[in-house]
């Protein structure tokens, strides 16, 4: 393939371009700093922002909303969710209806926080919270169990693991 030789820009044009670039740099250098000094300084994320870990919700009567249908696991592009269904004990049900989640795990080493699982959930059992303070020291710790996911997140800045760092 033949190619046209690139036109040589003249010197003035080049100096202008550098000046323009440097102007941007200077402008930014003296602007107010937006960086949050987490974890020294905790800034609450905006209301209704869904950027953090999952929460398994419950009904007002205490029954779990999750019915163990695994649609979240099906939707998950990262294969981060593991669900095992089981039969509810009609006398002492865990969730309304016939089926509940006997086991529910999310692997936060895999999770990409895309929220497709939340969209897939037919009962609004699974939601994302704004609790983003997730750090782990082992693989096991990164796999959250059902009990952990049912617990509402603590206020930001209270995770002991984070404070140690």
């Amino acid at each position: 393939m033949s190619r046209e030789p690139a036109p040589q820009p003249d010197v003035l044009q080049q100096v202008g371009a550098i000046a323009k670039g440097m102007a941007t740099v200077f402008k930014q250098t003296f602007r107010k700093d937006n960086t949050e000094q987490w974890p020294k300084q905790i800034v609450a994320p905006p209301e209704r922002s869904h950027i953090g870990r999952h929460l398994l919700n419950k009904h007002e009567n205490g029954l779990e909303k999750c019915i163990g249908c695994e649609l979240c696991a099906f939707a998950c592009p990262a294969d981060a969710i593991w669900v095992e269904g089981a039969d509810n004990d009609p006398e002492n049900p865990t969730s309304p209806g016939e089926r509940y989640a006997k086991d529910y795990q999310i692997n936060y080493l895999r999770c990409i926080m895309c929220g497709l699982c939340v969209e897939a959930c037919p009962t609004r059992a699974l939601t994302l919270t704004s609790y983003f303070e997730l750090s782990f020291t082992s693989r096991e710790e990164a796999i959250w169990t059902k009990e952990q996911l049912l617990e509402p997140p603590p206020p930001l800045g209270t995770d002991p693991v984070d404070r140690e760092g």
Binding site: G68, C69, E70, F74, G85, A86, E98
Partner: peptide
């Protein structure tokens, strides 16, 4: 097979 798996599993 009751509640054991979904087809995509």
């Amino acid at each position: 097979y009751r509640f054991v798996a979904r087809p995509f599993d």
